[in-house]
């Protein structure tokens, strides 16, 4: 475990000295702020409209705009989720591919380190970078709370916000795990990033495909879709089935990576 931590630390040091991570951080900050402002505007408009006409006369789906938590933050988490899907491949691509290209993989594999420690260390390092990227978005609910000082009541239901954020972190961890497997299979970072994207996006959209399917296939495929599983989590609903689902994807990915690293010795 000590070596795993050493590998994770090295991973973080290297990540934060390369421009890549900063590009991703900047992209996350820029895109999420852009959507945050958009969501706030919509929220404002609906609230104004409701003040004039009353909530009863607005379309039923505008009910989410009754409070900032559902109207802005939960919606924002939904946007960050999609941004994460797009940036995760760029964060996970270098995990193993770069070691192979750099020939440093030989160092890891000839040091007295178990493949399990290599995989765990790499994954922890990846989680650190992903955590930093997602950490930026916590600024938005904090901003909302800060500007609400003085008015009566809490601006946000922090339990819902944080549970939704937990769902987001779990999603980030899943993206990193899937990306790591693919990075362990190739020497090229571009190929790793592209493959990760090619796996994550269709998996996310799986539910959309099921419209033409017959039951019971339809339920099964729709259940396997990331989209279905994330829906409740982001709204702060603790659904054990969804937690188990994502935990399984992560564990399975780690096992596959472990296999890929071990197989390196047998090629």
């Amino acid at each position: 475990m000590r070596t795993a931590l050493a590998i994770a630390r090295k991973e973080l040091t290297i990540s934060f000295t390369t421009p890549w991570v900063y590009v991703v951080l900047a992209a996350m900050a820029a895109l999420s702020s852009f959507f945050f402002v958009g969501l706030l505007e919509t929220f404002q408009q609906v609230q104004d409209l409701a003040r004039e006409q009353g909530w009863e006369r607005l379309p039923p789906d505008s009910v989410v705009y009754r409070n900032l938590t559902d109207g802005v933050v939960v919606q924002l988490w939904g946007v960050v989720l999609i941004i994460t899907l797009f940036v995760a491949p760029f964060l996970s691509m270098r995990l193993f591919a770069e070691e192979k290209r750099n020939k440093t993989f030989e160092l890891l594999m000839t040091a007295p380190v178990r493949p399990l420690d290599i995989v765990l260390g790499k994954y922890l390092g990846g989680l650190g970078v992903m955590g930093a990227t997602l950490g930026l978005t916590l600024a938005f609910p904090l901003l909302l709370t800060a500007f609400n000082q003085g008015e009566e009541g809490q601006a946000l239901e922090w339990t819902t916000v944080l549970l939704g954020y937990g769902g987001l972190l779990l999603w980030g961890a899943t993206c990193m795990a899937v990306g790591m497997v693919l990075s362990a299979l190739t020497e090229s970072q571009m190929v790793a990033a592209f493959l990760t994207f090619a796996v994550l996006l269709p998996w996310m959209l799986l539910r959309g495909l099921t419209r033409t399917f017959e039951e019971p296939l339809r339920s099964v495929v729709s259940y396997l879709s990331f989209d279905t599983q994330l829906e409740g989590l982001l709204q702060g609903v603790v659904d054990v089935r969804a937690l188990v689902f994502f935990a399984s994807v992560i564990v399975f990915s780690l096992l596959l990576t472990h296999r890929a690293v071990e197989a390196q010795r047998w090629m």
């Binding site: 090295k10 290297i14 750099n102 020939k103 440093t104 993989f105 030989e106 000839t110 040091a111 007295p112």
Partner: peptide
Amino acid sequence: KRRIGYLPETPPLYPEL
């Protein structure tokens, strides 16, 4: 592995460190 020090053909260095 515990008993061997190894210098591969290409020194295995991390340029960023």
